[in-house]
Design a protein around this nucleic acid. Structure first.
Lengths: 192, 192
DNA sequence: GGCAGTTGCCTAAAGGCTTTAGGTAACTGC
DNA sequence: GCAGTTACCTAAAGCCTTTAGGCAACTGCC
């Protein structure tokens, strides 16, 4: 009975790989056990339950995304930074569709607080330093950018743009152009 | 052994109600059977399998959303139409979170073709008639609007904006202002 | 090096969901 | 009122989750 060396981290890592191969929804405790050639019950010493495993995969994906974002943003500003971060999300979703789905899991408040979510919003806010936006418009813009990045990538990965011209790549580029123009020319509050 | 009168439509309807109550992920064939006080196997004469049931719920939600959109757009144009359709999505997601999740299900190509997806993109395109956008920019704009609507509503419902100022309602309004401004002033293709 | 204690993976078992096969009772129309 | 069809049923197999309790393999200390 040799020991395999299971840890919560290794389980999450294996779950993330599995998610990319078979889809995040198909990642089960049983499937991960199979991958380690270990009995299912053995995993329950390392993760609380199925939900716990899925949450750990989500947290891992969020950290990976944040790491990539930090790297991409280094030394860039303005439109250049905007496009760099946007492409991090889109490229990650294409390379790791299962992990990307995992990153979209609704987290309980505690996990959300411990997640890289804060890093993500800080990165988006960093981009906005290249534009001239005061609060609360800056926060509105953070939310807009988050919505567009997440929304576009989700719709594209769901096949929403497939089989129709123009190419999604072209739309993506033009949408980034448009967002850049919008941020440089953010409308004043008409309510004012 | 009285007959209950099961049909695919009634199962989808019950599934949709269930989704709002317990979450779309928790909607199972067993749970729907329980709601009709009927044995599980009985449902399999009316739906092919679990995936089929879920797809029917998704199609129902997409139709409901499209119906609401059509009603909201009637007699409106420009920014007024933009805000009306946007609010249809957001309000629907708040009133019917389970159905909204269902509407985001990845559909197989055949179901997607038979879905109300086409109505949705035509409605968005109708809004753009109030702005001066030629192809391919019009399609880029359709995709942008779809991304923002879906992205914002998803992030908000996932709790992404909770417990932080300013109020999500305010961001939403300012984002709609910003989109209106952007559409009135869509940047020319820098590529030339 | 050997022993005590701890840890890690195991077997066993119960309960739930999915799906198929085949039976019986309730409707339909002639 | 009867024959045929349809709708729901029982039964059963397979897989996933989760808990309880056991044994073997490590750890560290003498």
């Amino acid at each position: 009975m040799s020991r395999v060396g299971l840890t919560p981290e290794r389980l999450a890592q294996a779950g993330a790989e599995l998610a990319d191969e078979i889809g995040f929804d198909a990642v089960t405790v049983s499937e991960v056990a199979r991958r380690f050639d270990v009995k299912v019950a053995s995993l329950y010493s390392h993760v609380k339950n199925s939900q716990d495993l899925r949450t750990r995969i989500a947290l891992l994906a969020l950290e990976e995304l944040a790491d990539r974002g930090a790297t991409a943003l280094a030394g860039r500003a303005g439109k250049d930074a905007l496009a760099a971060l946007a492409n991090v999300y889109r490229d990650y979703a294409r390379e790791h569709p299962g992990r990307y789905d995992a990153a979209r899991l609704k987290l309980d408040p505690e996990s959300a607080a411990a997640s890289a979510g804060g890093r993500h919003s800080r990165m988006t806010r960093a981009i906005l330093r290249g534009y001239d936006l005061a609060e609360p418009d800056q926060t509105h813009a953070v939310r807009l950018l988050g919505s567009v990045f997440h929304g576009y990538v989700s719709l594209e990965s769901a096949g929403g743009f497939s089989h129709s011209a123009p190419d999604p790549q072209e739309s993506w580029e033009r949408i980034l152009d448009a967002l850049d123009a919008l941020l440089r020319n953010w409308p004043a509050d008409q309510q004012g």
